[in-house]
Design a protein around this nucleic acid. Structure first.
Lengths: 119, 119
DNA sequence: CCATTCGTCAACCAGACGGTTGACAACACC
DNA sequence: GGTGTTGTCAACCGTCTGGTTGACGAATGG
């Protein structure tokens, strides 16, 4: 199950509720109860979601009396963006190479470039 | 399940095998058999993975005789990066704001949440 | 026409996931 | 010390997931 860090992060964000919590936490830290408020689920379910986010490194929890303020750890996003950007770039380069091929094609299939003398 | 597009994309990339396939496809299109080669799983399992990637919009399949070349659709990456960047930026702004507050704080003020203990 | 290659569909299985309820630990407050 | 608040742990449940095997469809090529 989700052995590597990247899998854990993607998996954690695959759930709309958890993404919503991340959105909420981007505004500022919050307690479990505060985070649970908008959703129609038990506090335990929210606690579980937070555990998943924590295991993914997206979130950290500290202690304030009985409260457990939750804090967003935005650095982990870099892991994802790095992965994504790498392959996006690779794919784009491939398209560019394809463009070169098309550009190098015989003129008769690319007539729009200039006025060739018609035969 | 996984009603929204974003969930489908994150969920699809949460699997290491599928991420690996995306990596492979960034280099160039491939058939199902070619994609299956590196992995020690049945062709059917690979077919299932491709279906997940296709449902997420990460991949498209065309036809070439009996072969079904698989093509990476890199535009979907934008969906993720947009989401990520939004909250990353929001969190960063918050840190900047926090820095301002800390900078504006008198030196002797130590924020304590507990009650001030009388001597 | 027949065999082969390439790939999908269907049924099944074990394990993970998201949710529930009930019990309980930790701390604050009176 | 007793009570209320905050949150976690544990057990359970239905569903989704990733894998398997077996059968089959579609197209190629002897």
């Amino acid at each position: 199950m989700a052995a590597d860090a990247l899998s854990r992060v993607f998996s954690a964000l695959a759930d709309p509720t958890r993404r919503d919590m991340v959105a909420r936490l981007a505004v500022g830290d919050a307690t479990v109860n505060e985070l649970a408020a908008p959703y129609d689920v038990s506090l335990q379910a929210v606690s579980k979601h937070l555990r998943v986010l924590e295991d993914a490194g997206l979130v950290s929890r500290s202690r304030d009396a009985q409260r457990r303020p939750v804090h967003l750890e935005a650095q982990v996003f870099d892991l994802m963006t790095k992965w994504i950007e790498r392959y996006r770039r690779e794919a784009e380069q491939r398209y560019r190479r394809l463009d070169d091929v098309l550009a190098a094609m015989p003129d008769d299939v690319t007539p729009t470039r200039g006025q060739e003398s018609p035969s």
